[in-house]
C-alpha cells in the first residue's frame, strides 16, 4: 500500500471544508491523515503510522473517516462518530427514521438544515452523512455492507 500523507495545503482544504460544511473546528488535528483512491481520507495515530512504515504488505491503516471530492466532503459513519460533539448541521431522527437511514432510504428533514450535507443523529450516535435533495429529504450515504437489509 502506498501511503500518501495529507498535509500542507490539502490538509488545510479538508479542514476548511469540514468547518464550512459541518462546523467542525478540530478535524482530527492530533491524528495523521492519509488519502487513498477516490479521495478516501483515513485517520490514524502518529505511532501507528510510524510502525506501519516498517511493515511490508500493509493493506490498510487506521480508520476511514471521510471522502474528499471536488464537490464536497462527506463523513463516514465512524468519521461522524468521532466528530459527533462538534457537528452543527445534524438531523435528529426518531427510531423509524433511524432505521430508514440505516437502510439507506431517504428521510424527511423535519428540522431546518443548511447546505448540501447533513449528518443524522439518533440517541446521541452520529450515523454518517446524507445528501440533501431538492425534495427536502436527506439521502443517506450508507455503504451497502452497513445497511439494515430490507424485509
Amino acid at each position: 500500500m502506498k501511503i500518501r500523507r495529507v498535509d500542507g495545503e490539502l490538509r488545510r482544504q479538508i479542514e476548511h471544508e469540514a468547518n464550512r460544511t459541518y462546523g467542525v473546528s478540530d478535524f482530527f488535528s492530533s491524528y495523521e491523515l492519509i488519502i487513498s483512491g477516490e479521495g478516501r481520507v483515513r485517520a490514524t495515530t502518529p505511532e501507528t503510522l510510524q510502525l506501519a512504515s516498517i511493515l511490508k504488505k500493509v493493506d490498510s491503516i487506521g480508520l476511514y473517516v471521510a471522502k474528499y471530492r471536488k464537490w464536497g466532503l462527506t463523513l463516514s459513519i465512524e468519521g461522524s462518530h468521532y466528530l459527533c460533539q462538534q457537528l452543527k448541521n445534524t438531523l435528529e431522527l426518531d427510531r423509524d427514521d433511524a432505521v430508514r437511514w440505516m437502510m439507506a432510504a431517504p428521510v424527511e428533514a423535519r428540522q431546518k438544515t443548511s447546505g448540501k450535507f447533513v449528518v443524522a443523529r439518533y440517541h446521541g450516535f452520529c450515523m454518517g452523512t446524507g445528501v440533501m435533495g431538492r425534495d427536502g429529504r436527506a439521502y443517506p450515504q450508507v455503504p451497502k455492507w452497513r445497511r439494515i437489509p430490507e424485509e
Partner: peptide
Amino acid sequence: MQKFGVINSIITLR
C-alpha cells in the same frame, strides 16, 4: 475493524 471504530490499526496481508 472499520465498523468497530479502530483508529490505531494496521492490517497486513501476508
